[in-house]
Nucleic acid binder design. Structure first.
Lengths: 112, 112
DNA sequence: TGACATACCTTGCCACGCGAGGTATTATAC
DNA sequence: GTATAATACCTCGCGTGGCAAGGTATGTCA
């Protein structure tokens, strides 16, 4: 199941915020993690995630820090900010209302 | 609660299809109906709905017919086609999987 | 007459997913 | 040693679609 890319809009940023709210993560890791957690139902690529992270950082919803992995690779770790947590709470609440409304519209067959 | 317009993408067409699957409806009626059913949580305007209807018709997922109301006004009634019903089934199934995946990602706080 | 609801429509802006392309490093396989 | 893949970052450009704003025409009501 590959989801329409139109569905992703509006939830990509909250999902990223939720992940980096648990622990600092770097971009490549986020891509793999989202795809794996959803059993490849999501198939995020770099072109989706990196611009998303940059938007979040520009909006000061996350901040970032370069760290060197034991492998020697440079990784840019992102953490959620206080502002980001507030934003996330709002977006989760919005999602809950929205998904309930859509399900009510879509899943009720043949009502009067 | 006014929803982010990014959330609407990907569900507008299925919602319209679901409505005209119940009975033939005209555009202005669909706008009022969606807004009312969601207690104004949705605030659809003409600029959202009419292009959506035209896309659906171009894709042969609905067809249309002019009828005159008792008031004398011309109304364009839309009906779902066989192809539209198949499309709707797929989109409802996609929505179900998608919303479950997003909720699982967004609503699970602090898992390991 | 003037305002409002009904009923249709289009144009233009902007945001964003994502395919495609690029760079650099490390690991693996031959 | 060298080719290939995986890791890790990035940007550019296309296409899509919401929706604000604007337009037309008719019916209703004060």
């Amino acid at each position: 199941m590959k989801f329409s890319s139109d569905l992703i809009r509006g939830v990509a940023e909250p999902i990223v915020l939720r992940l980096v709210a648990e622990r600092p993560m770097y971009g490549y890791e986020i891509i793999k993690d989202v795809n794996q957690r959803t059993n490849q139902a999501f198939e995020w690529k770099e072109g989706t995630l990196y611009p998303c992270l940059h938007r979040l950082e520009a909006a000061k919803l996350v901040d970032s820090e370069w760290r060197e992995a034991t492998s020697g690779k440079q990784r840019k770790y992102y953490r959620i900010t206080r502002k980001g947590r507030a934003f996330l709470r709002d977006k989760v609440s919005e999602w809950t209302s929205f998904s309930a409304a859509v399900s009510a519209l879509l899943l009720c067959s043949h009502e009067a």
